[in-house]
Amino acid sequence: MSESDFYDGLRLRKKTIIQTGQKVNFVDIGSSFLPAFEKITSVLVVPFTKDGLIVCALLDRGIDRIDLPGGHVEVNEFTCEETAKREVMEEVGVTLEELKLVKVIQSD
Rank of each mutant, 00 (worst) to 15 (best):
P35K: 06
L44F: 11
N76W: 12
I54G: 09
I66E: 12
G30N: 11
D51P: 07
A36T: 06
V45M: 07
V75R: 06
P35I: 01
V73R: 06
K50R: 15
S42T: 03
V24R: 14
Q22H: 13
T41M: 03
V46I: 14
I54S: 09
E74W: 07
T49K: 05
I63C: 00
D64Q: 12
T49L: 03
T49W: 07
G21V: 02
L68G: 01
F48M: 05
F26I: 04
N76K: 04
I40V: 10
L68V: 06
P69Q: 04
G70L: 02
E38P: 02
D28V: 03
V27D: 02
N25C: 11
I40Q: 04
I29E: 11
F26D: 01
V24M: 13
I40W: 06
S42V: 00
A36S: 12
P47D: 02
R65V: 02
I29H: 07
F37D: 11
G21R: 04
F48E: 03
D60S: 08
I54Q: 11
L68R: 05
A36Q: 08
F26K: 05
L59M: 13
G30E: 13
S42Q: 11
V55K: 15
V55S: 08
V73L: 07
S31Y: 15
C56I: 15
S42P: 00
R65H: 11
I66S: 13
I54F: 10
S42L: 00
V27K: 09
V24L: 15
V55W: 09
Q22Y: 08
G71T: 03
K39S: 09
V43L: 07
C56E: 10
C56G: 11
T41N: 09
F33M: 01
P69D: 04
V46C: 10
T41A: 06
V43Q: 08
G71H: 07
Q22K: 11
C56S: 15
P47L: 02
I63H: 00
V55T: 10
I29D: 05
F48P: 00
T49S: 13
N76G: 05
P47H: 03
K50A: 14
G21F: 07
L58V: 14
R61E: 00
G62N: 00
D64G: 10
N25D: 12
V46F: 11
D67E: 14
F26Y: 10
G21E: 04
D67C: 12
F48K: 02
A57H: 12
L58H: 08
F26S: 03
G62S: 00
V27T: 09
K39V: 01
T41H: 09
G52W: 13
V45G: 06
P47T: 01
I54K: 13
I63Y: 00
P69S: 05
I66V: 15
P69A: 03
